[in-house]
Design a protein around this nucleic acid. Structure first.
Lengths: 204, 204
DNA sequence: TACGTTTTATAACGATTGATTTAAAACGCA
DNA sequence: TGCGTTTTAAATCAATCGTTATAAAACGTA
């Protein structure tokens, strides 16, 4: 019928993610973007619409890749281990982030979401999902006794979420292993059931 | 000798802070900035230098105002109370932040610091200072027994720092009172000495 | 009152911005 | 082999970008 695309949409989107992720939205021009994607500006507009639309697609791409499978991958593990493994991976990722790109969702939460209702909704939804993951871990752990029930599950889920975001911000300017691995210890300690549970109810 | 300035440098700097804080660095043009400061672009350049220099001064202004007295104000309180009051204030500020500007230091940490060594240094220094404040609180509390010593003071200070940053990010897209006030509970619980200390060592 | 200096206001600089136009190129289908 | 359609490449659009020149205005001093 017509001339076919010369590029793979998923591939150029991944390149767009990489650029937006590293430089942010405002600091990226259409020409920067098109070059990074290996396209002309005309092709970018033809295939995706305007700059905001490319960012939107790129963020969706990032979210799907970063949160899509991850939750499921950890959710099958024992609850406490799932949380531990989750943070281990986040810290690993943060420490090996040579370009200091951080987390594109967090970056979006601060740069574009506050001035754009749609992005605000998208970011908030993901944060709710991550909170939900933590919540389900805590619930399961409190049920089978592998996670302390001294704090409400909803509160603990919030604590884990804010810790996650905090690490992502902190690592962006201070990617120090001792700092990140140290700060997570008390948080995980918060989840561990206290010593011998017999003593808990044995004392009036 | 010469024609005097028609504006107060501190006052226009505060207006610059307000604008950069709300819109960020890249999204703010010199014309936006000059208008917000009530000056012409020529006056801005004459008085401060280029755009980056204005942001630099504005960030310094913000840091001084936000962290300068605060640390001292809380440090005179009993350690646990100091930490509690600190987070109470942060949560209050986050919930009353109608424009969702968040914390300008955190915003800078994500938008300008990663691509500018000087800003990276400035931001990192402030984060070290805040960590130091938490650290001194924990140290004092662990000495007088008002803060649990089950976790290392350095680790706890890191946890508090990341929690602070996490709240600042989370509140930007989900400024929900229950969420923020809930998530801080376990963190503060982490600091509180465990129940009856006699039981701790009474059991082998 | 005239001079030296700095700040103002205005206009303009070239460069770049997001976005579009134009026309040639590349296909499937008739 | 043309036809209809879409993508490509290149040029171009007005608007805005960060920054600076120019000259009038406003002072202290001589």
């Amino acid at each position: 019928m017509a001339r076919p695309r010369e590029f793979d949409e998923a591939k150029v989107l991944e390149l767009a993610v990489e650029h937006f992720w590293e430089r942010g939205y405002e600091a990226t021009s259409i020409r920067d973007l098109a070059q990074a994607m290996g396209l002309t500006t005309a092709s970018v507009y033809n295939a995706f619409g305007d700059k905001r639309a490319v960012y939107r697609r790129a963020l969706d791409f990032y979210i799907e890749r970063s949160f899509g499978d991850r939750v499921g991958r950890f959710e099958s593990k024992p609850p406490l281990l799932a949380v531990k493994a989750f943070f281990d991976e986040i810290i690993d990722r943060s420490l090996s982030d040579v370009k200091r790109k951080g987390c594109m969702l967090v970056n979006s939460a601060l740069e574009v979401a506050p001035h754009d209702e749609e992005f605000q909704r998208v970011v908030a939804e993901v944060l709710v999902q991550v909170e939900g993951f933590f919540r389900r871990c805590v619930d399961r752990g409190q049920e089978d006794g592998t996670i302390s029930n001294r704090q409400a599950a909803s509160d603990l889920a919030g604590t884990l979420l804010s810790t996650l975001l905090g690490i992502r911000v902190l690592a962006r300017t201070r990617p120090e292993r001792k700092l990140l691995e140290g700060l997570i210890k008390p948080v995980l300690g918060l989840l561990e059931p206290v010593g011998s549970s017999r003593l808990e109810w044995a004392v009036p």
